[in-house]
């Protein structure tokens, strides 16, 4: 497990997949030999939260539920929002670019167009899912948090179609399985008439994206949702 006293540079050398994670917190490279703690202080980041996010991202078997549940809800939602932003602005366009390059490497391969079609379907579902959360779920969670913290001074937003956070809990599986399908179609069923290196690049991106999504979904399902449910129970005991 990484510790606050460790140099962030050492951690990145150890697991470079954490690069996008530190970016999500607003940390950029060129931090010299500073420890994680010092960097967090300089950037006004909750250091405990930062290191736990790093550790869970690094080790899929590590998930300190109890510790996460102690962090304030806005902190968690903010991280989830930033992750969405990263998907919109980087992962999705990048996958698309790599897919297009792969297809361009094999003119006349009509089967590759099937891949594009399937990808677009996946993208559409992913977009809908992310947008739904950005538009309804996250604001609902934050609004509930405000209500709880400020008592009667805050008003419950009525515009959200979400009745309870529990209503949306099951939505991740479709997106996950489509991504897995996409990988399997490429790995197992598509005859390789294309540039191998371009395909490897795309697959590597898909694998990384899958890991990122898994980690993201875990924080939503196991931390955000239970936290909101807890507030719901306290605010609206029925």
């Amino acid at each position: 497990m990484y510790k606050l006293s460790q140099k962030l540079a050492d951690i990145i050398h150890h697991d470079h997949q954490l690069l996008p994670v530190i970016n999500r917190f607003g940390v950029r490279l060129g931090f010299g030999d500073q420890s994680v703690e010092d960097i967090c202080i300089a950037h006004n980041i909750n250091a405990e939260f930062f290191i736990e996010i790093m550790n869970t991202y690094h080790d899929p078997d590590y998930f300190p539920r109890e510790r996460f549940l102690d962090f304030p809800l806005p902190l968690i939602v903010d991280y989830l929002k930033k992750t969405h932003h990263y998907y919109y602005t980087w992962y999705i366009p990048e996958i698309e670019k790599q897919l297009n390059e792969l297809i361009a490497s094999a003119p006349g391969e009509s089967n590759l167009s099937l891949l594009t079609k399937f990808y677009l379907k996946f993208k559409q579902e992913l977009h809908e899912h992310l947008q739904y959360e950005d538009k309804f779920t996250f604001p609902y969670a934050l609004n509930l948090h405000d209500l709880f913290v400020q008592g009667s001074n805050a008003k419950r937003t009525e515009s959200t179609p979400v009745k309870s956070i529990a209503d949306y809990e099951e939505e991740h599986s479709d997106v996950d399985s489509k991504l897995l399908d996409l990988k399997n179609i490429i790995i197992k069923y598509l005859q390789a008439g294309y540039d191998d290196n371009k395909c490897n690049t795309l697959l590597t991106t898909l694998f990384n994206f899958e890991d990122d999504l898994r980690d993201h979904a875990r924080i939503e399902d196991k931390i955000m949702v239970p936290k909101v449910l807890q507030i719901e129970k306290l605010l609206f005991p029925s």
């Binding site: 891949l115 079609k117 399937f118 379907k121 479709d174 399985s177 489509k178 399908d181 399997n184 179609i185």
Partner: peptide
């Protein structure tokens, strides 16, 4: 190893 309907169609 394919779950979605559109994946099966592909």
């Amino acid at each position: 190893g394919i779950k979605s309907i559109s994946g099966l169609t592909v």
